[in-house]
C-alpha cells in the first residue's frame, strides 16, 4: 500500500461511516449507557469521585463514538456541527453568571453562600452553587472536546 492509497483509506475510515452492522448495533446499544453514566458521574460528583470534568468527557466520548461509527453526516441529528461552540460559551456563561449572581446578591464574586434562594442555610446554598457551576463545566468541556474532534476531522 503506497502513501496515497493509505491516505485515502485512512480518510474514508475516519470521515465516512463504518459499514459493518455489528459495529452499528454495538455502538447504538452502548451510547445511551455511556450518556447515562456521564449524567450519573456529573450528578453524583458531590458524594463520590466524579464531577463536571469527568461527566463532560464521558458525554463527549459518547458523541465521538457516534461520529466515528455513523460518520459525520449521519450523526448530525444527535449533535449538529454548529452547536458545540455556542454550547461551550453557554457553559462558561453559566459559570461566570453564577458568580455574578452571588456578587449582585451581596457577597463577593463566586461566594455561593449569598445566592438569593430563600429558605436555605449558606452551607446548602454552597452545595447548590457547586452543582450549578459543575453544570457549566460539564457543558463547556463536552462541547469543546466534540468541537476539537470535529475540526480535526473536517480540516
Amino acid at each position: 500500500m503506497n502513501e496515497v492509497t493509505r491516505d485515502i483509506v485512512l480518510r474514508r475510515h475516519m470521515e465516512g461511516p463504518i459499514v459493518s452492522p455489528i459495529v452499528h448495533v454495538c455502538i447504538r446499544g452502548l451510547v445511551p449507557f455511556i450518556q447515562i453514566v456521564g449524567l450519573y458521574v456529573y450528578f453524583h460528583g458531590h458524594y463520590s469521585p466524579g464531577g463536571g470534568f469527568q461527566g463532560g468527557v464521558l458525554m463527549a466520548a459518547s458523541i465521538i463514538l457516534l461520529r466515528m461509527s455513523l460518520g459525520l453526516a449521519d450523526s448530525q441529528a444527535v449533535m449538529p456541527n454548529r452547536l458545540p461552540i455556542p454550547l461551550a460559551a453557554v457553559g462558561a456563561l453559566i459559570y461566570a453568571g453564577t458568580g455574578l449572581f452571588a456578587m449582585v446578591a451581596g457577597g463577593s464574586y463566586l461566594d455561593y453562600g449569598f445566592l438569593p434562594i430563600p429558605g436555605l442555610e449558606p452551607a446548602m446554598l454552597r452545595n447548590l452553587g457547586i452543582l450549578m457551576i459543575e453544570l457549566g463545566v460539564t457543558l463547556c468541556v463536552m462541547s469543546t472536546i466534540i468541537s476539537i474532534y470535529d475540526n480535526l476531522l473536517g480540516s
Binding site: 464531577g51 470534568f53 468527557v57 468541556v141 469543546t144 472536546i145 476539537i148 475540526n151 480535526l152 480540516s155
Partner: peptide, 24 residues
C-alpha cells in the same frame, strides 16, 4: 491535577491543529 488533565487534552488539540496547518 483534575484541572491539569483537561487542560492537557485541550493543549493536545490545539497543538495538533497547529501541526495540521503547518503540514498544509
Amino acid at each position: 491535577m483534575l484541572t491539569a488533565i483537561v487542560v492537557a487534552v485541550v493543549t493536545l488539540g490545539v497543538s495538533f491543529a497547529l501541526v495540521i496547518m503547518i503540514h498544509k
